Structures are given as C-alpha cells and as structure tokens.
Amino acid sequence: MGVFAQHVADFAERGLAAFPVDTRAKRPAVKGWQQASAVKSRAWARSPKLAAADGVGLLMGKPSGVVEVDVDAAGEAWLAVAVDRFGETPIKIRTASGKSKLWYRHNGEGRHIRPFPDEPIDILGNGFTIAPPSRREDLGTCYAFVTGGLDDVANLPTMPPTERQTDTQRLTGSAANGARNVSLWRWCMTEARHCEDVEALSAAAAAWNGALIAPLSAREVEQCARSAWKYEAAGRNFIGLKKPQLTNGDRIMDGLIDHPEAYALYLLFQRWHGNRNSFAIAPTAMSSAGSPPWPRRRIESARDILLERGFLAEVRSPDKSRRKSGLYSLTAQPIPGGGAGEGVYSDCWQICQVSEGV
C-alpha cells in the first residue's frame, strides 16, 4: 500500500476530506477531488491504483476547517516572518523540499498567491494542499509535522483579522465591479508560475472561482486558465513582476539582435576564448579554416560591430605591414545601448501589464 492507503483512515476519523495526490506533479490523482469527504476517502483507498498513491491531499477551507500559510522558501528566517505575521499555531509542517507550512482554523479566508509584496508566502483557504506524511520518491523525503499533528486540528487558532481582510479583498474586491473574467485571467497569469501544468492551473482557478459570490461558468474558468498558460509556456508572462528577470546572456542578445552575425561571432569567441585575457582575431585565417565559414570581409564586419558596441576591447591593433593580427579581449560587462534589441523585454513586459480579453 502507498502512503494514501496507509494513512487515509487517520484523516477520515477526524472528518477531514482527503484524497490521493501525485506528489511529484503536485496534482490530484483522482477526478472529483473537489467533492472529497471521509466516506469517499475510504472508498478511494479501496482502489488498488489509488491506494498506491504516495501523497495525501487535503481540501482547504470549509471542507476541512483549515487554512494554510504556505511558506514557499526554505529556512527558519522566512518561517519566523510568517509566524510573526499570522501568530503562533500548534501545527507546523516541513515539506519534502524543506519549506514550511502553517495551519490555522478556517474563518472565511480565500486563496491567494503572494498577497504580500516581496514575501514568499501564499494563503490557501481554498483548493488543496499536500499533507504529511506524503512522500516524494524523487527527493527521498516525506512531508512531516514538525510540531503538532492531526489531533491538533480541532484546536487551531484563527488568523489575525487584518490578514483575513487583506486576503478576502484581494480575491473578490476587483471582481465585484463586473470585471470577474479579467480578474480571474490576471490571477491565473500570476498563479501560472507556481503550477506544473495547465491542468494544475485549471484546478487552482476553479478553487479561486468558487470563492466568488457569483462564480463564472466552468467553461469561462477553463478558457482563462488555458489562455494564461499559453503566455507562461511561451515565456511571455510578466504580470505581477516588477521587471523582467534578465540574465547577462539576455542582455547580450538584446545588444546584438539586429546583427545576428556579430552575435554568432561573439558566442564563438566566448566558447573558444572565454577563459583567456586576450586572443588573436585573424579574419583571413579564420575564413580559410571555415571557422566560421564566412568570407573574410564578413568576419571583419562582425568584429567591428562587437568593437563598436563594447563587446570586444582592442588590446593591440593589427599591423598589416608586419603581418600581425590584432589582439582582443572579451569585456567583462558589455557597454549598454546601441542595439536595436534594447528594450525588447521591457516592451513585452509593458504589453503584458495591460489587461487583455480572453
């Protein structure tokens, strides 16, 4: 038997709505999990396939009477931040990846991802969570109660009223003005970064929708989730970010995007000479060797673009009379500006900040 079959009775005896989950994909392993109950939990455990599941999912909110504070960062420091914000609780959980969860008594909270800027904290008053002692075989570890256990669920404290109000307002405030569809779409865009696939995002969107006084249809929820996932899968989802998260490689591409041959030559130089202080560039010899397979003048033109835009620095000028090639070095930080690609990412980001129809 898997973890689910071994421990489902512990949840059912306390009236908790549990169901089997795929811990690696972090998604339910059974359809109809939203209607989980103690009776259904026991029935699922009698199915050999479901009984083998190594994860126990627990419905959050009204069905279980539990709201979870998910600390999506490892370490005691962020756990201390969460406890300071929401108060002490007898149930603290360590996830298989070493992060933390706090359980409180549900008091009307909804579900919201990152309600507080710059804090890796999620409030789960809807949807589901993965509960101890679920196991991640790929990590070789289990979810575990650090303090407390299932017997303490009946004695959980509630969150401070100010935190409950903040979460509820963020979930339903903008939807009250008739813009529910756009509100859900933007929420899906933010939530997509925390989902494994479109099915997981659709399930989370259904839970969000369930918190509304006048929920959208299942078809509209599915459309919003799939639209948001297309942006996420294409790498064009910048909603909720203060700025695009760019690497130095991205900046190099931006600076040379209008001169692809210069960009290709720069990448070759990085491969061959990235660990050298200086190196020779001999366009005639390079062309003859087919490295790269371009005419001499094309190599010279690409080299000159790299010099002009600060991607190369000239250490020694070429001396044709003495038939000596020039010496060059890769700059530690390319000089910004000049490239036609500059601003591409910021432009995309600005576009994605505008609400779109779904």
Rank of each mutant, 00 (worst) to 15 (best):
I121A: 07
N126E: 13
T95M: 01
P28F: 04
A45S: 12
D250Q: 01
G15V: 13
H106L: 09
L216Y: 02
M60A: 13
P117N: 07
R303E: 14
K49H: 15
T162R: 08
A45T: 05
T166Q: 11
A73W: 06
N177P: 00
D122Y: 01
C352Q: 15
G290H: 07
C224W: 00
L216H: 01
P244E: 04
W185D: 04
G2C: 08
R46I: 05
S291V: 14
C188W: 09
S217Y: 08
R42M: 13
G127C: 03
A36L: 02
A205G: 09
S321L: 11
A74E: 15
S134K: 07
A289K: 13
T158R: 00
Q6N: 09
G110L: 10
L201S: 06
E137S: 13
Q34M: 04
I121V: 15
T172Y: 00
A12E: 01
V354Y: 11
V198D: 08
K242G: 12
I91A: 03
I335W: 02
D250C: 04
C188A: 15
E196L: 09
G210D: 10
Q34E: 12
A38H: 01
V8W: 11
L102S: 02
Y263P: 00
I239P: 01
W78V: 13
D22K: 01
